[in-house]
């Protein structure tokens, strides 16, 4: 009972805190920094959700931009195409008021997450057959197929992309609230999975799939679940990003984005949620900080990437975590790898 109370209080405090922060930041912050901040949030969601698949379950997926794209386009399709069709009959869906905007955003989020989750299910299925590098290539191929499809579907604008998406998340100055709500959701989800018995099965699949299978872990279910949850979160990030940017085009979801997200996970330390968060912030902020170098900046960025990989192959954090309180249960040890 007490724990339930604590949880309710924690959730309430999070909501109110985020709301106040969001109001404060929107009025105080320079729009440029604000945009970087939101971008950081979106990429933290992406990195943490890929970490679920890649770091915690050990499935070598590098096509995360595909799910990101599915979420963004389905979400944007709701606000741009489907909502105008049904709004005449259901007038409560009207946008423009705060309630209407939030309602529409929630519907877009649900649609985006569901469809990205379904895409994740479809991609998760080959993971039953493919391992290691082969799975990586198949996921990258999936992302690229999505990219080419988006380039060719005219109803969502083709190569021009969808423009003039209403900024639903910014209405009532709530942009920061929505994005960081999902950041917190994805982090808490990862933490809870890693510290629960269910999470142990996920880790066991990463460490040794055959041994896990032999011990009675339903590896099929674990892998597909990881893919579905990870891609649904990426879909949510897509919906939020589309409704923040107001214009999306397939180029945002090209292979470079997939690679960027994978880099975040590896740089932070694959399997470490803290690492993913920090690496996402670093990789978004670093190119902005290096802007004074003008043309040299991407060269220095890539050299830094190589140096990082050579001097700290396990990533910034390895598999360590910061700030995951262990009140009740000891964190599952992931160090002693089985032979």
């Amino acid at each position: 009972m007490r724990i339930l109370m604590l949880r309710v209080i924690a959730i309430l405090v999070t909501f109110i805190g985020l709301y106040m922060l969001s109001q404060f930041v929107t009025y105080q912050m320079d729009p440029y920094y604000f945009q970087v901040l939101i971008e950081c949030g979106v990429y933290i969601i992406l990195a943490v959700s890929l970490n679920l698949i890649n770091g915690i379950t050990g499935q070598f997926s590098i096509g995360h931009a595909g799910f990101f794209a599915v979420g963004a386009y389905v979400g944007a399709a709701w606000t741009m195409i489907w909502q105008p069709m049904v709004v005449e009959r259901y007038s409560f869906l009207q946008m423009g008021t705060l309630h209407g905007d939030i309602l529409n955003l929630l519907i877009a989020l649900i649609l985006g997450m569901t469809s990205a989750g379904m895409a994740g299910f479809v991609v998760g299925l080959p993971s039953l057959r493919l391992r290691g590098d082969y799975l990586a290539i198949a996921t990258l191929g999936f992302a690229e197929v999505i990219y080419v499809l988006l380039l060719n579907i005219n109803s969502v604008g083709g190569a021009r992309g969808l423009n003039g998406i209403p900024t639903l998340i910014s209405s009532g100055n709530l942009a920061l609230f929505w994005v960081f709500l999902f950041v917190i959701i994805s982090i808490v989800l990862s933490r809870n999975i890693m510290q629960s018995v269910r999470g142990l099965t996920w880790l066991s699949v990463r460490e040794d799939e055959i041994a896990a299978d032999a011990m009675g872990v339903d590896t099929t279910k674990v892998k597909v679940t990881a893919f579905v949850i990870g891609s649904a979160l990426a879909g949510a990030a897509g919906v939020l990003y589309a409704h923040f940017l107001t214009g999306i085009s397939p180029d945002i979801f090209s292979m470079n984005t997939s690679i960027l997200i994978t880099t975040m996970v590896v740089l932070g330390g694959s399997g470490s949620v803290t690492g993913s968060v920090i690496a996402a912030i670093v990789l978004i902020v670093l190119p902005e900080v290096l802007r004074f170098l003008k043309n040299d900046r991407m060269v220095i960025y890539s050299v830094l990437l190589i140096v990082m990989m050579l001097t700290r192959p396990q990533g910034i954090f390895g598999t360590k975590e910061i700030g995951f309180p262990k009140w009740r249960r000891k964190q599952p040890k992931t160090e002693g790898r089985s032979a």
Partner: peptide, 14 residues
């Protein structure tokens, strides 16, 4: 494997 892949991507970007 993932490390090697990221290093290769780094070289490609370079």
């Amino acid at each position: 494997r993932l490390n090697a892949l990221i290093t290769a991507i780094g070289v490609s970007l370079l």
